[in-house]
Design a binder for these strands. Structure first.
Lengths: 139, 139
DNA sequence: CTGGATCCTCGTTGATACTG
DNA sequence: CAGTATCAACGAGGATCCAG
């Protein structure tokens, strides 16, 4: 599959010994899910908001602009399943449910924060690059 | 470029404080796109791989397991548009096109690496939480 | 108040075939 | 080799209604 034939010796070299770190530590296995959890539309927002302290469903619903009830429910379920968020329901009338970050979730939040920070800092460059690209290809 | 921009001392404080603000610095605007770029299925993989050095389309195609030509093309276009990757085509026969990380892309890679590292380190905990959750709800 | 159940739409992806 | 074009399929996400 790999060693069958190699017209270009550079390809063989590139495949066998490129650099110490050819890619990510994991690459393509379980990490995918964790990244997806952060990459999905709402999770990071929820985690960011919960970083300031526990909140009820309704409060969360108000603080995440544009989310639907369904998506908020699903997002919270996923986060709970992954051990990032705890769900505490108080059997009262009317029902009250509070969501809070676990220590694991707090760690995730801090790590994600670093990336958000980077994205914020470099957003101007990225926007500029997009503008340049668009004008270049449109013209 | 890094140390010069800090007009507001509160921002610096907000970065180090445990519970700085209600949410992320940006929240809901342009950052979304950047996060989406990382969150999408292939971009991080491509960026990670390109971290070891420039590669041709075909080599990339081989190193990303399961990607389709179309998706690789689209992913590279997006990354190029955002100024994270450069595309250099050599007018030869057969055609040769090389993709490489820009400095911006390299910065993105490093920042993302921190997160991937976290995800790798804590994957066991997350998997355990999932298992616990599933058995709890299934039983 | 919280959130489960349904329906429906739209975007993203993959397979395939074709071109410079 | 490095794409582009086209089409079909799938699934995430939104709207709405209903229930504990």
């Amino acid at each position: 599959m790999f060693a069958s034939q190699d017209p270009d010796p550079r390809l063989a070299a590139a495949r066998t010994a490129p650099h110490p770190c050819a890619s990510w530590p994991d690459n393509g296995q379980g990490i995918r899910d964790t990244i997806d959890r952060v990459g999905d539309k709402w999770s990071i927002l929820v985690i960011g908001i919960l970083g300031s302290g526990p909140l009820r469903f309704g409060a969360l619903y108000e603080q995440v602009p544009g989310i639907s009830q369904r998506m908020l429910t699903l997002t919270l379920r996923h986060l709970e399943r992954d051990g990032l968020v705890t769900r505490t329901s108080y059997p009262e009338m009317p029902p009250r449910v509070e969501y809070a970050l676990t220590p694991l979730g707090e760690g995730m939040r801090e790590t994600a924060y670093a990336f958000v920070q980077w994205a914020t800092d470099h957003n101007p460059e990225i926007e500029a690059a997009r503008l340049a690209y668009d004008t270049r290809t449109t013209r």
